[in-house]
Simulated scan of single mutants.
Amino acid sequence: MTDQPMNPAGAQERWLRLYYFARSAFSVLWVAAAFTLGQQTSSIAAVLLIIYPAWDALANTADAAASGGLGRNRTQSINAVVSLITALAVAMTLPTGMNAVLGVFGVWAILSGLLQLGTAVRRWTSSGAQWAMILSGGQSALAGAFFIVQARMPAPPSITAIAGYAAVGALYFLVSAVWLSVTEWRRRAGGASGGARTS
């Protein structure tokens, strides 16, 4: 009797499937809170605005650690640092108003989007569903530029502007998770049918 050989590629895709589902679920919950509690109480909105980039920092750190370590995954590591700095910057700019906060989010969306795009390009040959992550990264950078323009407008924006951005991100993560799940199901189904034909 021999042990089953390990499949690093399969383990990585299982991690990414779980990771993408978790990120999508968090974003959906955050968006729901932003559209309800965030619009009713300014203190809750402030907490939500700090939590969002802080969660991104935690998520990128976990992804890098599960994918070979922080040293081998520079884009995720840098993204984690950028997101942590963003959370601190948001906390510092909240007293000055939402225009300044939206400007901070704009810079962050550009940087984190480009870093996410870089991560997806690097994973293109080893993991599936990276086309969605490339689209997500590009869309994030474009949204960030729009945030910066919007932040210069005289009318103060609300948390819903950022919630819309988060909702689109949730969709991309969900698409990636479902894509990986369907790919795994097809692989198993193909293996099972192949085994049945040769038995």
Rank of each mutant, 00 (worst) to 15 (best):
P5T: 01
T93R: 09
R17A: 11
F173I: 02
A66R: 12
F35A: 09
R186C: 14
Y20M: 09
R72I: 02
L180G: 05
A192F: 12
T119N: 05
G103H: 00
Y172C: 08
S158I: 03
A87S: 14
A22E: 12
A25Y: 06
T41K: 08
V149M: 01
F26G: 02
T75Q: 05
T75W: 03
F26C: 01
T41E: 12
I44L: 12
W131E: 14
F146Q: 11
S158C: 14
L18V: 09
Q39L: 10
I51P: 02
A89W: 00
A11D: 10
S43Y: 03
G169W: 08
G195A: 15
I78P: 07
A65C: 05
S193R: 13
G169Q: 13
S158E: 08
D3P: 00
A45M: 09
R14V: 11
I85H: 12
S193E: 15
L88Y: 08
A163D: 01
T160F: 01
R186M: 15
V104M: 08
V31Y: 10
A189C: 03
I159D: 00
T2S: 15
V178S: 04
W179A: 07
R152H: 05
A155H: 07
L49T: 08
W185N: 11
S176V: 04
A22Y: 00
A46Q: 13
I110T: 00
P8M: 04
N60Y: 06
N7M: 05
G68D: 01
A66C: 09
V178N: 11
G190F: 10
N79H: 02
G144T: 05
A109R: 01
L18S: 15
